[in-house]
Design a protein around this nucleic acid. Structure first.
Lengths: 190, 190, 190, 190
DNA sequence: GATGAATGAGTGTTCATTCAT
DNA sequence: CATGAATGAACACTCATTCAT
C-alpha cells in the first residue's frame, strides 16, 4: 500500500515540525514526535535510520521548499535589483505563511546536527540566486565580496527579523519588509 | 569553615563555555560540565540555583564582557561613522580572542533559555551604542528604521561571520573585517 | 509488537511490597524496586505513571484484596455479633497469610501519599461492614458514636496487633485473636 | 558558654519537629532542618552523631514529655477507673496543645528508625500506668490480657483519633473524648 | 564550638533505540 | 509494515556527611 506509507511519513514530517515549534528542538524526543504523529516510536525507525536522520531529512526537505518558494517568478532577464527584490519578498511571504518551518530551520541550524550537513548540497536549490549574485558582481552592480558575506547581510537578516524570539517587537508588515530590503540592497550594492 | 573558592566558580564558568563549544549547548549536561571543571556535580549547585541559573548567569557575564570590549576607546565626540567603525573592530577583536564566548552566546540565544532573559537588562551595557544610533538617525546620517532592524544588519552579521559553524570558509583577516564594515555601514547609512 | 507481560506487572507489584517489608517505605526507591523485580527502572514507568502512581495503585489493590477477604462468608441475616466475629477472624487470617501486605498498608497510611487517597473510594469494599455497623447502632446493639471512632477501636487495633514492629512480643494464635475480639466487641457494644 | 549551647540544641530540637510537621518525615533532610534552626548542617553533627541520632533523640525526648503530661495528678489511691480517666484526658489535653509533637511521634513510629528503639526504655515513664493496669488485672477490674493488647485498645486509638490524617472528620471536643474513653474502658474492663 | 564549602552516591524520571509479535 | 513493550544509560537534582578554617 503505497498511499498509506506516504501518509505515515508525511504525518511524521509534520509532527516533527509542529512539536519543535510547540516545545522546542531540545525537548522534542522521538517518542513525543511519534505520539504527535499518532504513530509508534518504532515506526519512525522504519522511515528513518535514527533520530539524526529524521531531523536532518526534515531540515533538508524544508530547505528545498524554501528554495522553491524563493525562486517563484524568478526571471533572470530582469534587472538584478528587481530579481533580488522579488526573492526578498518571496522569502518573507513564505515565512509569514510557514512560520513553523522557519522556526525549525533556525533551531536546527543552531544545533550540533547542522555540523553534519553538506552545505553545498543543502543550498543547491539556491544555486540560481548565487549565479545572479555572481553576475551582479561581474557587472559591477554588487560589491565584490565572498558569497558568505553577502549571505550574512541578506539571508541572516531575513531569518533574524522573522524570528520572534530574536526581535520580539517588530511587525513584518509590507512597509517594514520594504525598508529591510532597502538596507540589504544598500549593503551589497556597489 | 572552608572559604568559598573563587577558583572553583571560575573553573565552572570556564568549563561551561568550553564544553558548550566542544559538544554543543544541548548535550552539555550538568554532570559533564562538572567533570570538565574537575568538580562534583553537587558543587555546581552551591554556586548556582539550578542548571538554568548556571546557563543564564554565564550568558549575562559574557554579555557584559562583550559590552565592555565593544566600547573600548568609545569617544562620542568623534564622527558617528568613526565611532561605529571602532565598535565594529572592537567586536571582531574580542571575537577573535574569545571565539568560544561568542559561540556560547549564539547557542544560548537560540535556546529556550533566551526567552527568560530581560533583554533591556541584558543589553544595558550596549546603551551607549543605542544612543549613538539614535543620534545618527536624528542627524540624518543613519536611516530612520527601528533599532531591531539596525541590529539585524549590524549585530547579527558580526555574529554570523564570526561563527565558524555558520560560515565555514571565511577568514576574519583585517581586510575581510574592513569589507564587512563597509557593507554594514552602507546598509544603515542614509 | 511484544505483548504486555502480565507477569512483569505482577513482579513489580510483588517486588514493591516485598521491598517495603524489607527496607521500609521510605528507603524503597524506584530503582531498588526495579532491581527486586528483575526489571529496568524504565519498565516501571510503562505500567505506572510515576512513583506515586505505583505506590497508590499498590495500596488500592491490597485494600481491595483485604476487603474481599474480610467479607468471606458474610451473611447479614446472622446476628450482628456473629457477623462481626466472622469479619474479625477473616481479617486476622488474611493478615497471618499476608503479613507483608498489611505492613505495606500500614506504612502507606502513615506516608504523605495517603493524603492523596479518596477514602470513600478506597474503602468502598468495606461498605457492607459500615452498613452492618449502622444497623447495629439502629438496633441499639452498638454504641451510637461516629464511624471513625468505631474504626479506631476495631480496624486499627487489628492493624496494630498484627504489626510486628508495633507489638513485638504478641503471638497471633487463635486464643489471642478471640480475646482481642472480646475487647473490640466490648468497646463498641451498647 | 553553656547557655549558648543549650539554645542551639533547643533550636535544632524545635526545628526538627516543626519541619516534620510542615513537610513530613520523609522530606525532612538534615540541611533543611539546619536551615529551619538557623544553624549550619555541620553544627547538627556536633550535638548528634548522625541523622538517626537526631531523630531518635527527638523521639525519646517527646516520649518523655508525653509520659510526664499523662501522669499529671496521678493518684494511685483513687479507683482505677478514675485514674485511668485522668490519664485519658491528660493525653488528649497534651495532644491538643502539642499536635506537632504527636505528629512527629506517629511518623517516627512508622519509620524504620523505630526498629532501633528499645521500647522498654522508651516507655519507662509509662511505668506507673503499667503498674496500675497490672493492679487492675489482679483486682479483677481489668481483663487478664497482655499489656500489648491493652495498649492496642488504649494508646493507639488515642493516637489514631488525634491524627487528622487518619480521621479527617472528627472533632476532639470534650464530649467526643468522653465517648472515646467510654469505649476504651468498656474494652478493657472485666 | 561553629561554620559554609564540598562531595560521591543516590533520587525520580526520560531518553534513543531494539525486540518480539 | 507496524506496533507497544522493554531497556541501560543518562538526565537534573538532593542527600547525609566530612572537611578546612
Amino acid at each position: 500500500m503505497r498511499i498509506k506509507d506516504e501518509l505515515k511519513q508525511e504525518a511524521i514530517f509534520k509532527a516533527t515540525i509542529k512539536l519543535v515549534n510547540k516545545i522546542g528542538f531540545v525537548s522534542s524526543s522521538v517518542s513525543k514526535i511519534a505520539k504527535e504523529a499518532n504513530v509508534s516510536p518504532a515506526t519512525i525507525y522504519i522511515y528513518y535510520k535514527n533520530k539524526e536522520d529524521l531531523l536532518v531529512s526534515t531540515f533538508l526537505r524544508i530547505k528545498q521548499q524554501l528554495g522553491t518558494a524563493m525562486l517563484k517568478n524568478f526571471d533572470e532577464s530582469k534587472p538584478i535589483r528587481d530579481v533580488f527584490r522579488t526573492i526578498w519578498f518571496n522569502s518573507f511571504n513564505f515565512i509569514q505563511i510557514n512560520p513553523d518551518l522557519i522556526n525549525y530551520v533556525e533551531q536546527f541550524q543552531n544545533s550540533p546536527y547542522y555540523d553534519l550537513i553538506d552545505i553545498k548540497a543543502a543550498e543547491s536549490s539556491f544555486e540560481p540566486v548565487l549565479m545572479m549574485i555572481k553576475k551582479g558582481i561581474d557587472q559591477k552592480i554588487i560589491k565584490d565580496v565572498s558569497l558568505d558575506m553577502i549571505g550574512a547581510f541578506i539571508y541572516y537578516p531575513i531569518m533574524i527579523l522573522s524570528n520572534p524570539r530574536r526581535t520580539r517587537n517588530i511587525k513584518l508588515d509590507k512597509k517594514t519588509i520594504e525598508k529591510a530590503f532597502q538596507l540589504a540592497w544598500d549593503a551589497i550594492k556597489l
